[in-house]
């Protein structure tokens, strides 16, 4: 049980760390796909199948595509030009900040007594129950999320759209 979790963790952390360290953006985007798939595997391990499918659909499917498109659209025309190497001092400062947060979090986790050492059977939550919850108590949140997604879509289109050079006279 724990072994599977450790394997999944190594996959997630390893691919995330390597992805963020690579110079080639396409490679790191592909590694992010692996990382997100690993997170989906974690959800499956934890018994949250529906969340795992949502993760696969949205991250592995959609977000990775958007990222790839962004990478391809913003590639420098001269691919041979070396990207400005990230400065060493900034990396060290980042490591200090990240290490500080990590130290605090790990210390807190290891220092807190957890009384659920015996894992119960995996809770079952069927799609039907999730649907009932979404359409019942959380219906308002669902509507707001739908609205948010619509607005985000429109906003993304507006931000990324090319401004026409000539100003058209008709009303719009």
């Amino acid at each position: 049980m724990n072994l599977a979790l450790i394997l999944i963790s190594v996959l997630i952390l390893g691919s995330a760390a390597v992805a963020l360290a690579l110079r080639n953006l396409i490679h790191s985007a592909l590694l992010f796909v692996g990382c997100w798939a690993g997170i989906a595997a974690f959800y499956l391990w934890a018994g949250a199948e529906f969340v795992a499918f949502a993760q696969v659909l949205i991250y592995v499917g959609a977000v990775s595509m958007v990222v790839l498109f962004a990478v391809l659209l913003t590639r420098q025309s001269d691919a041979a030009e070396p990207m400005n190497p990230d400065s060493f001092s900034r990396f060290m400062r980042a490591l200090v900040a990240g290490g500080g947060v990590a130290g605090i979090l790990v210390g807190a986790i290891l220092g807190t007594p957890m009384d659920v050492s015996t894992a119960g059977p995996a809770p079952t939550l069927t799609v039907k129950e999730i649907g009932g919850q979404l359409m019942g108590p959380h219906a308002a949140a669902l509507l707001i999320v739908g609205l948010l997604l619509t607005v985000a879509l429109l906003g993304a289109v507006v931000i990324a759209a090319v401004d026409r050079p000539e100003k058209s006279e008709d009303a719009s």
Partner: peptide, 19 residues
Amino acid sequence: HGYLRWVAMGFVIIMLVVV
């Protein structure tokens, strides 16, 4: 980056104070 670093450091400081 600086902003984000401040957020992280702020979190660390607050946690240290609390703990």
